Simulated scan of single mutants.
Amino acid sequence: MLYADLREVLLIEKRAYEFSWTESIFRDCIRVGYHCQVLETPHGFIQTYGVMSAAAGEAHILNLCVRPELRGRGLSRRMLEHLLELARTAEVQSVFLEVRPTNTAALRLYSSAGFCEIGLRPGYYPAAGGREDALVMAKEL
Rank of each mutant, 00 (worst) to 15 (best):
S20I: 05
V95E: 00
R31Y: 10
H60Y: 05
L64D: 03
V9F: 11
V32C: 12
H43S: 12
E13L: 04
T48F: 00
Q37G: 03
L86V: 10
R77Q: 13
E85F: 12
N63G: 04
E13I: 03
F19D: 07
M79I: 06
E98D: 00
H82N: 15
A56T: 02
T22M: 08
R27L: 08
A87R: 09
I30H: 03
I30R: 03
E13W: 03
V38P: 07
A16D: 03
R31H: 10
M79L: 14
R77D: 13
R15I: 07
E69P: 06
Y49S: 01
W21T: 07
L83T: 02
L97E: 06
R73G: 05
I46C: 05
E18Y: 09
E23P: 09
H60S: 06
A54Q: 01
S24L: 12
T22Q: 10
L10S: 02
Q37C: 07
E13D: 08
M52N: 02
V9S: 10
F19Y: 13
R77K: 13
N63T: 04
Y17K: 10
A90R: 13
S20K: 09
L39R: 07
R67V: 05
V9G: 11
I61F: 00
L11T: 15
F45N: 14
R15W: 09
R88C: 06
C29Q: 09
H60V: 04
H35C: 11
S24C: 06
F19P: 04
E91N: 15
R71V: 10
R31W: 07
E85K: 13
F19G: 04
E81P: 11
E85H: 15
S24K: 15
F26A: 01
M79Y: 12
C36K: 02
